[in-house]
């Protein structure tokens, strides 16, 4: 299916840099993400010409112009639909979708839902900066309730959506969250996402230094990060907090609770299992200040990809009755001769 041939040559980051000038605002979190992706690409071992970046509209969606691969900067919110059609036509290509919180969860919410539930084999990178940047600073579907912006001077009345919870609800088979300021960790998460078979969803917490600076400061600030960042590692207990006073999580029924490690026997601590879809739903609901924010792979499971199921049906139909023949089709069923 998506049998990707071994790259004929060893790429470096530079091979993935296009000749276009990058036009994001100086200081934008997108630079770090671009750099991390360009750096991670050689590790995938996929010939550059077999890689396509598809984006919608918004600051993040300029991304394809800066990648020296095939790229298509499309329409607001529609990238998942366009990527689905591309995968159906060309299952030999590695397809990335780059989107943002407005593009992916507002105007394109429906398409994101369906690309995830179908499990189309694409890697979806959602840059979440909790604001509309390209249109100059309106609140987005991930902005916090009461957010004061140009379009909500009295505070927004909209409750925010959690991208990871949305993705899990849609039936995604790979869900992860990462932060633009933790480059090494982000690179690793992106690599794992790109290697996933099926729809992989990564929420990248990204800083818009012009319209929503430090929206993720809870995870940037050296002090606050200690109690608010929960690194997910498969097979390891969920731990956070200062080195001398580690905190952990326990599950009481379906309800999570924070405990001090020194007060709790090791056997009760919640050990992360990224194959557990039930617990992933609980993880996706954890948020500061009541809980630390999970960073890393919340869940990854295997399931058949949409286009592979369809192509298998095509193969089976051809195996059973041979390839289509229009001349035969036209004379099938009731016919009659005149003259």
């Amino acid at each position: 299916m998506s049998e990707i041939t071994e790259a004929p040559k060893k790429y470096t980051k530079k091979d993935f840099e296009s000749d276009q000038d990058v036009r994001w605002c100086p200081g934008c979190g997108d630079y770090a993400i671009l750099s991390a992706i360009q750096k991670m690409m050689p590790d995938l071992g996929i010939p550059r010409e077999n890689i396509v970046f598809i984006s919608g509209i918004g600051c993040s969606s300029r991304f394809p112009y800066y990648m020296n691969t095939y790229g298509f900067h499309t329409i607001h919110g529609r990238a998942p639909a366009i990527a689905t059609g591309l995968r159906l036509a060309r299952p030999d290509l590695k397809v990335f979708v780059v989107t943002g919180d407005g593009d992916g969860l507002s105007i394109g919410g429906n398409h994101l839902l369906h690309v995830l539930r179908r499990n189309v084999n694409v890697t979806i990178l959602l840059f979440n900066n909790r604001i509309y940047g390209l249109t100059k600073g309106q609140y987005s579907p991930t902005s916090e309730l009461g957010k004061v912006t140009k379009s909500s001077p009295a505070g927004s009345a909209d409750r925010p959506v959690s991208p990871c919870a949305f993705a899990l609800g849609a039936g995604a088979t790979f869900v992860a969250r990462t932060v633009d300021r933790n480059v090494a960790y982000m690179e690793e998460t992106l690599r794992r996402a790109a290697q996933h078979h099926g729809a992989a969803f990564v929420e990248i917490l990204q800083n818009c230094n012009v319209y929503n600076d430090l929206a993720w400061n809870v995870l940037y600030d050296r002090e606050s990060k200690i109690m608010n960042e929960l690194r997910l590692e498969h097979g390891k207990p969920l731990l956070f907090g200062p080195v001398d006073d580690r905190h952990g999580l326990v599950l009481e029924g379906a309800t999570p609770r924070v405990v001090r490690v020194k007060d709790a026997p090791e056997s009760v601590l919640w050990v992360h299992d990224d194959g557990n879809t039930w617990k992933a739903h609980v993880l996706s609901q954890l948020w500061a200040p009541d809980f630390p924010i999970p960073i890393g792979i919340l869940m990854q499971v295997e399931a058949p990809a949409y286009e592979e199921v369809l192509l298998e049906q095509e193969r089976a139909a051809i195996a059973e009755r041979g390839p289509g023949d229009v001349a035969k089709l036209l004379v099938s069923g009731d016919t009659w001769r005149i003259g």
């Binding site: 396509v52 598809i54 499309t74 329409i75 529609r78 639909a81 990527a83 689905t84 059609g85 429906n110």
Partner: peptide, 13 residues
């Protein structure tokens, strides 16, 4: 919208 999006993606491919 997705229906037309998919075919534009296919045409690109």
């Amino acid at each position: 919208i997705a229906a037309v999006g998919a075919i534009v993606g296919a045409a690109f491919g």
